[in-house]
């Protein structure tokens, strides 16, 4: 289960909406052992595409350092699917960099954003519940 604080959830979905019509992306920071994201790092999508994303490498470095300075880690990545369901695409699975990460997809296909989270280990995708907590 992935837990998100409400500010993290709102910032993540807001960044995805702001990115339209392109895919948006960012990183989630938190405590790996509790799978709770308390930090949201919206990043630029340097692929600047409606179908692909690449987290800005320098922003990734800065986010990684910031999380570490707070005694936390980058525990996952989020990105939007602008016109498909919130499920990892073959591209997402093939490029998943870390089996310990949470892969969050925010689908903007329908009227309201749909947020789902997945674990991707050795190419196998398993969905996990997403819980938004007030604090």
């Amino acid at each position: 289960m992935l837990r998100l604080t409400r500010p993290v959830y709102e910032r993540m979905v807001g960044h995805c909406l702001d990115g339209l019509p392109l895919e948006a992306c960012g990183l989630l920071g938190g405590e790996p052992s509790t799978a709770k994201a308390t930090l949201c790092y919206p990043t630029d999508n340097v692929a600047a595409s409606a179908r692909l994303y690449t987290v800005d490498p320098r922003q990734h470095l800065l986010a990684d350092r910031d999380a570490e300075a707070r005694g936390l880690e980058i525990i996952g990545v989020f990105h939007s699917h602008t016109h498909t369901e919130a499920f990892p695409s073959p591209t997402d699975v093939a490029q998943a960099p870390d089996p310990s990460w949470h892969y969050v997809v925010v689908s903007l296909r329908d009227l309201g954003p749909v947020t789902r989270s997945f674990l991707i280990v050795d190419g196998k995708v398993s969905e996990e519940p997403v819980v938004v907590e007030d604090r």
Partner: peptide, 29 residues
């Protein structure tokens, strides 16, 4: 990012820090 410097030929100096991170990419495809 060393891709924007001299890639693997980028010179390191005293006190340099080399960081390695995964490239994070994907998308609806």
């Amino acid at each position: 990012d060393v891709r924007y410097l001299d890639k693997l030929d980028t010179k390191v100096g005293d006190g340099s820090v080399v960081s390695i991170l995964p490239a994070v990419a994907g998308g609806a495809g």
